[in-house]
Write a protein that binds this DNA or RNA. Structure first.
Lengths: 344, 344
DNA sequence: ATGTGCTCCGTAAACGTTTACGACGCTATA
DNA sequence: TATAGCGTCGTAAACGTTTACGGAGCACAT
């Protein structure tokens, strides 16, 4: 109805010239270009994306795959919405759009991704919640679609990634607790094979070693990344023969359950057991005592994520010359009262 | 590289037949169809979406627009992820896919939607977080793309919508509080013009009228849908000449701030001021006293949302014959200790 | 007069599908 | 035998763009 053809007929010029004028090609007269742009605006003409995609094999969209049933942050505010905002901000600078691809809980993530890739709905991809070995990365390495992973993985490949600094989180939390006199420090980590748990554990072990503290496997407590998981973690900790005096929880939501279990035993977080958790949310200040945790800007993370992805796309590599980005995202410690010094 | 042409050559049949076989057309031999499907699976062939869209003017995708900076539920678990899951489940039954379109905070939602529509990226749309007057609905009414709104609006039009039963929430909360002896009942509603606030207020007024209680405008407290907003609400309530004895908060996240402000004044939620809030999250049970709130299945909501959208699409109207759906989604009350009877 | 280079524009092919149309071979019926 | 009908399949046009190619017109130098 309102294709490029109608536009050309109306101006009595060929569709080739119209296309060139619209796409900013140099070989078109200034006056002609002005007329074309004017008529296009007047008619409300917007190029049909399917035709354009078919011809030039590009869609001007990047995909962000998430798993509906799985919030990587497990945290009481919406991790992804903040990140989307940052990514979208970067993309819109280049007339690209972000489409989020939510994989349903009952579908295999790799198959879903496969479908999205072959569909050619997007030019590039962001995947999140990477696993220790991630078959999606294997898949994407085979195809040649540019992508970046939000989260490291042990799966080989020289793809770009951006990850939260869980190693730093672990190190700084342990340093802080040791400085306050703690020696028996437990950690609560996810029970699935999401990679951040492994990274976190590496940092934990390294920090213990630095302080000359022996690593005790039974102080690593695996539980779901939920309020219930935190409850379980606390329960397991309290029923140990020789309980820890401090704990670092990887998800703030777990802290809620952790507090709850402690309260049930008449114990007080902070006073009886020190607690540090990742990641700050509106809850942190409300919990009593306030939770010592780590803070980050989701939007800034999204911006860096978007820029890093563009840097790996040939068409934008000259604008973002940072090459293959592989870096960790720093976080800031927020002091609460939940990690007081050891008693006595 | 792996188009329908290669598939046809490999089988020594025409691409027309291959296409018909893949699309389940009747005029193809069973044996031929079997061979085509087998070869397609083996080659990992998936039709190019651009070519298909161009030819038949359809994209096999539906969009779900969200606003990154704005979580409609304002609640401590991820409202949208649950809904996505349900929608995707329905769509995949018909080989449709869901793409989420996150509008950045710095972009005008109507312009963003306009761009997505003309891009012809999707066949149908879901919009969420509807406002009292919503220019997106005006826009979509002009175009002829099928859509459904998650949330009512005062903007005219005979489009389908599905909305949470905020009127029911208000009515049942007030009934419950009145039965416990409360007469001065405040409400905390959003300060922006999102429509659910108006619906909620309507229910509130109707319930008061039923119980013969006069409506007092200063018992309607407007605040942001955040923890801080809840804090403000409590503060405003406490500094009133004649404070209310109960409050109904529209966002659970506000309850956290509300509790916090009460605690600062040495007051106890439930005992000194009754609190009911919408919507249940992992927090509800943890708060002390546990929050009386409303529960719903996000996934089931998503399923109904998806089915209602399909019902308004000509191509699926025979499978989902419910016509133009306009209904509210029921919610279940969950009892906590936060809404005890009035003192004395 | 011829050649060269430049600017601007039209022509037509290509991208990967779907589908209207018609052709072919076969069977059944008159 | 002729005709009609059916099942199956090939042919080619169409969807809306972009872009390689070449040509027309002109200016300028040789």
């Amino acid at each position: 109805m309102k294709g490029i053809r109608q536009l050309a007929e109306r101006l009595n010029i060929s569709i080739g010239t119209v296309s060139r004028a619209l796409n900013g090609r140099p070989d078109v007269n200034d006056e002609t270009r002005r007329r074309v742009l004017e008529a296009a605006a007047e008619m409300g003409y917007v190029p049909n994306q399917s035709g354009r995609s078919l011809r030039q094999g590009t869609t001007n969209a990047v995909g962000f795959m998430i798993e509906s049933g799985f919030d990587v942050a497990g945290n009481p505010d919406n991790f992804f919405l903040g990140v989307f905002d940052g990514v979208q901000t970067v993309l819109s600078r280049h007339h690209l759009d972000l489409v989020v691809l939510p994989c349903a809980t009952d579908e295999d993530p790799t198959q879903y991704l496969q479908r999205m890739v072959t569909r050619r709905l997007v030019d590039a991809l962001i995947i999140s919640a990477t696993h220790r070995t991630d078959r999606r990365i294997e898949l994407l390495n085979k195809t040649h679609i540019p992508f970046i992973a939000l989260g490291r993985s042990a799966t080989p490949g020289n793809h770009p990634w951006l990850d939260l600094d869980f190693e730093g989180v672990a190190n700084r939390a342990i340093d802080r607790l040791v400085a306050k006199g703690h020696r028996r420090i437990a950690v609560g980590v996810p029970s699935n094979d999401i990679n951040l748990g492994f990274v976190f554990l590496d940092g934990y072990k390294a920090a213990l070693a630095r302080h000359g503290i022996a690593f005790e496997p039974n102080l690593v407590i695996r539980a779901p990344s939920s309020e219930q998981g935190g409850y379980q973690t606390a329960h397991e900790l309290l029923t140990m023969p020789e309980p820890a005096t401090a704990v670092v929880l990887i998800y703030e939501l777990m802290a809620i359950g952790f507090y709850r279990r402690l309260n049930e035993s008449g114990l007080s977080p902070g006073r009886d057991i020190a607690v540090i958790a990742f990641r700050e949310s509106p809850l942190s200040r409300f919990l009593s005592p306030a939770l010592t945790c780590f803070r980050m800007s989701l939007r800034d993370l999204g911006i860096t994520l978007g820029e890093s992805l563009l840097a790996s796309m040939p068409a934008y590599a000259d604008i973002y010359p940072q090459g293959i980005v592989r870096r960790v995202w720093p976080m800031e410690l927020v002091e609460g009262g939940s990690d007081q010094a050891i008693k006595g």
